Computed example of a mutant assay.
Amino acid sequence: MPTPTSETAHTDPATTRPDRMPWGALVALAAVGFLLLSAETMPAGLLPSIARDLGTSEALVGQFTGTWALGTVLVTVPAITLTQGLPRKPLLIGALVGLVLANAVTAVSSDVVLSLASRFVGGAFTGVLWGMLAAYGRRISPPERGGLALAVVATGAPVGFAVGTPLGAWVGGVVDWRWSFVGLSALGVLLAVAVVAVVPALRGQARTDRMPLLRVFLLRGVPIVLVVIAVWMLGHNTVYTYVAPFLRDGGSGLAADVVLLVYGVASIGGVVVTALVIDRRPRLLLQASIVGFVVAAVVLVVGHAQPVAVLVAAGVWGLAFGGASPQLQRALSVAGGAQSDLANAFLPVAFNLAIAAAGLVGAALLAVSGGLSLGVLMAALGVVAFVLTVVGRRTFSA
């Protein structure tokens, strides 16, 4: 846990930790998270339109998301490491501008290779932003409300799942898929202006306060938090990515968009619950969330043919997993201490590696044993994540 000295050294003297929550700034940072999630997942709802317009296959267009994730994985940690000493607000704005330009290129490109390159660049800028948001929210908020600040900032991701991606698909269907990406760029410009107006400035780390990358990775608590992230995300994404074949093999007759809508709405509730509890009982909250996740998986498997059971499971799943991001970001920030920016740079890497692995693992399971096995894996990995929180209870209690 950071000492008062290290925390003060890490904060701009002009923006020392206030006594009141900076709600406007936190909402602006949450909106950035909404933009990031929406931009990453936007191609999922537009695959046929993009493929038809670019004269290529849906399978290749499907790599728009994979290429984005690759940019995040390869660039995030080196970028955050090299920019530790830079003032945080200009870096935040600069990364937003880079994301705006990448989405603009995607919107106008008629060449699939250029489009894939723009998605890689967009993923790289996204990784820098994800690596900054959690620490930024904590540093501009009262120390005792750091968990609440993270929960507010994290609302952007589930809202992006529940609203951003479906809205982009609707715009693409009514007008043209390119306008969905134009909308992302326009939103990015508005958010850059909002950040300039309401987000406090923070200085970077002094050279004497910095640690080598490997030492940050090996700080007590950081490795186990990253393993929990990877395991829990793998269990989640394996089913989330292949929810359509899971539902088809289950025989409930439910469409994937209905189940995901229930999940998305419930996940917002999960963030609200997290905001209310995270600063008081962080470990209990995390463990209860994982238990709820396991229960949802079991219900999905046992009640796979019953529409009501599947919808209830989707609601429990969203409620349990919706607050995962702020809960794990809090644990990683506390474990990282004064190095929280760099520690949080590992988070999007772990997330995106789990996303990539989920695609491969899910495809293998579908080929070998069918969709229902995905729910079994979801439950098993949830149990593993729970055991890890027990083993690392000191880290998750701090």
Rank of each mutant, 00 (worst) to 15 (best):
A244V: 13
L96P: 06
G147S: 07
A124F: 05
V368M: 07
A117H: 11
P158N: 07
G250N: 06
P282C: 04
L234N: 01
S49G: 14
N103D: 13
G188L: 06
W130E: 04
G131C: 05
S373P: 12
R281C: 12
V391I: 15
A135C: 08
S180Y: 01
A230D: 13
G336S: 03
G85E: 09
A79F: 12
G188P: 01
V262Q: 06
A380G: 15
W170F: 13
A363N: 14
G315P: 06
R145D: 11
L365F: 08
S38E: 02
D341C: 12
G172P: 07
V302M: 07
Q327H: 11
L70H: 10
S333W: 05
A14P: 14
V231I: 15
I93M: 10
T8D: 15
Y136V: 04
T56W: 04
A51H: 13
A305I: 06
L285D: 05
V100N: 00
Q306C: 11
I224H: 06
A275M: 10
V227A: 15
T16Y: 09
M378S: 14
L328M: 12
P223I: 05
T65Q: 09
T208F: 03
V216W: 00
R394D: 15
A124D: 01
S57M: 05
E58C: 09
P87S: 12
P78R: 06
S57D: 08
V291T: 10
G146T: 09
V231Q: 06
G183Y: 00
V259S: 02
L214I: 08
Q327N: 15
A256R: 05
A69Y: 05
L46M: 11
R178W: 05
L328T: 09
L360N: 12
M211I: 09
F217V: 11
T41A: 12
L187K: 03
V32Q: 08
V361D: 01
S109K: 08
P142H: 06
L234E: 01
G371C: 07
R145Y: 04
R145F: 03
A194E: 10
P18L: 03
A357T: 15
V97S: 09
V349L: 04
T15S: 14
L234I: 08
W317F: 10
G337I: 00
L91C: 08
L300R: 01
I268W: 03
L254S: 00
S397G: 15
G235T: 13
P2S: 13
V195A: 11
L372R: 13
G250L: 03
S6M: 12
T106F: 06
V308E: 15
D341H: 13
L374D: 01
V383Q: 03
A30K: 01
